[in-house]
Design a protein around this nucleic acid. Structure first.
Lengths: 245, 245
DNA sequence: GTAGTCAGATTGTCCGGACATGCCGATTGA
DNA sequence: TCAATCGGCATGTCCGGACAATCTGACTAC
């Protein structure tokens, strides 16, 4: 069976991108079965009226996503999936929404405070200079799931409490024109203090999952520092990772 | 100041790789300062006697690593670092060794057992069929740090207890010719049972950091399933992640 | 003085070709 | 029958060029 592929040269969408999307859809849909060979590049290019570099670029992007494996002298084959999405920088809000959980947010604090030494170091600002402090409680099915405490440098974004309750922080930042680039993360665990336990409806001393994160935009500025605690009975970090080769 | 770059055409190492390594070293070393522009591709290609696609391939690999950012009409600039390593599939052993911690391993169990339903599902083998079971205690500075329980399908690798004590499981698998491709991971937390507490020199009910992982090779076979528990006072997961754009 | 326009610079996309490299099967030889 | 060699095949690397898209800054017009 021949896979139906076609490209639209009048579209502003790059040709290699059109192709990679079609291939990805075919893999997702099961038309390209795991382990099956994706006929040689030369012929594929000829069939589509594309050049080999363009076809290679499309295939390479899927290899980088972990969907395909190339073997010299053999060909390109579809990975026996199990592959979902690799870990990406996502907000808890988006994660929950993608899982169909209807997340709710309660903003506890939204104010300007002088930066502590810890916050100043993380954000790269002067100590005691003003920073935004946002504390939120994230709920799913009416039950508290996580406590999120974030610090942001001033002047970057307009933090509206109403918007914070209806969407995620990252989405707000992206729509404010900030291009997120990378983040440094640390995941650990500790026993809940009485205050933390109260907030999350747990017992004092109960195990909590913690995450700290500093996010940078593409100019290298720190744009957010967060300290989060999660109820481990309600949430765990799940992700896929690829071996860089 | 001109950055000193050169390529060796007689080397079997690909030219784009030689170039990307030199650029990466210059960034690491601080010769290329964060935010500085990396002169245009055309001129760079001419200076090195390379073609533009080759130079682009080198630059692209560093963009993928998060070290560089390209802007159309502007140029390519070095990211204001803070960038260490992105998250990769690594063994605890390698992580500790890289941190200069001289890890030690004590093999507690190394046997063939019938697969439980959970293990069979994770590895994709029949229930009650034989699988390797390896239990190890990982120590740093003489103190227990983590308890590692792994299951492997039979026939893949020769599990020598002595080798397991002197190196990591992943290194063993790689040297056995297995090409690791991806892994599905889950990180959570829970209270220690009495048995777990004893093993890790913690109190019963103390918070533990947990990680479960299924690793796949490039043919899509599950090659390892692991259930690990870490002492959160001694270990946390630290990593960098890039925004896929 | 301010806003709109234009030109230069630089990366993004795409082409067509060439040769090298590694893998696999088939043929050949023992 | 089995092992070694050889050749075909598919990807890997590299070239040189062409045009498009986008950003910046300077110039111009109002």
């Amino acid at each position: 069976m021949q896979l139906e592929l076609s490209v639209d040269r009048s579209s502003p969408v790059p040709l290699y991108f059109q192709l990679s999307q079609q291939l990805e859809a075919a893999i997702e849909h099961g038309t390209l079965t795991p382990g099956s060979l994706l006929g040689n590049e030369i012929e594929l290019a000829a069939r589509l009226g594309l050049s080999r570099p363009t076809v290679r670029q499309a295939i390479q992007s899927l290899v980088d996503k972990g969907l395909l494996v190339r073997r010299r002298g053999v060909g390109t084959q579809v990975v026996h999936s199990q592959v979902k999405r690799p870990l990406e920088l996502s907000s808890l809000y988006d994660d929950l929404e993608a899982a169909g959980q209807r997340p709710a947010t309660r903003v506890l604090v939204n104010e300007l405070v002088p930066a502590s030494a810890e916050v100043a170091a993380a954000l790269g600002v002067a100590e005691d200079s003003d920073v935004h402090r946002v504390e939120r409680l994230r709920l799913a099915h009416g039950e508290p799931m996580a406590h999120l405490c974030n610090f942001l440098p001033p002047g970057l974004i307009d933090l509206d409490t109403d918007q914070l309750e209806t969407t995620g922080l990252y989405r707000l930042m992206r729509s404010a024109g900030i291009t997120l680039h990378s983040a440094r993360q640390s995941i650990g665990a500790r026993a809940a203090t009485t205050e933390e336990a109260d907030r999350l409806a747990e017992e004092t001393g109960a195990p909590l999952l913690t995450m700290q994160r500093v996010t940078f935009d593409d100019t290298g500025r720190a744009v957010e520092y967060g300290t989060h605690t999660y109820r481990p009975t309600r949430y765990s970090f799940e992700f896929q990772l690829l071996v860089r080769s």
